[in-house]
């Protein structure tokens, strides 16, 4: 249980840092960190396959996309970064307060869990569900990947 609490708290901390830090690059690193913590949580929640996806795609690919975007757009000097940090702090000081208050408040609440909770062993395999039972979703994914490919072509070509 202790490890779960640590994981939960660090997840929120990483997300808060992502939002509050002034430099976009650090923000992206914070996002990757959040992803990694989420991956560990997913492992703990018996979802290894989704966890691997989260790690490789969200922590890896999305960070790469963001970093290339940032390196193509913005360059801040140290001074600018410092003033920006102040500006950000004035805008975002409320966030940790809200987070702590909400966290404490929610921790006090005991929701009546009237739906049946049972962590029974899963009834079938993930691969079976993806490849055999949900063909429609596969078609959707192919379509969206195609759309993404056309989009990248349309938006980047000169």
């Amino acid at each position: 249980m202790t490890i779960n609490i640590i994981l939960g708290v660090s997840l929120v901390l990483a997300a808060a840092w992502t939002v509050m830090t002034a430099r976009l690059l650090r923000s992206v690193i914070g996002l990757a960190l959040t992803s990694m913590i989420l991956t560990i949580i997913m492992f703990k929640l018996n979802s290894p396959l989704a966890a691997v996806f989260e790690l490789s795609v969200c922590a890896g690919l999305i960070s790469a996309i963001f970093i290339s975007c940032i390196s193509l757009t913005q360059r801040l000097t140290d001074e600018q970064a410092a003033t920006k940090q102040k500006e950000r702090f004035s805008k975002f000081w409320l966030l940790p307060v809200i987070l702590v208050l909400a966290g404490v408040a929610l921790y006090q609440v005991h929701i009546p869990l009237d739906f049946h909770l049972q962590a029974a062993p899963s009834e079938s395999d993930v691969r079976n569900i993806i490849w055999n039972l949900r063909h429609l979703d596969l078609i959707g994914q192919i379509a969206i990947l195609l759309a993404g490919a056309f989009g990248v072509v349309a938006l980047f070509k000169d």
Binding site: S47, L49, Q118, S122, E123, V126, I129
Partner: peptide, 9 residues
């Protein structure tokens, strides 16, 4: 709910 496979998919 014990439906890990579906949730992962």
């Amino acid at each position: 709910t014990g439906r890990m496979a579906l949730a992962q998919a």
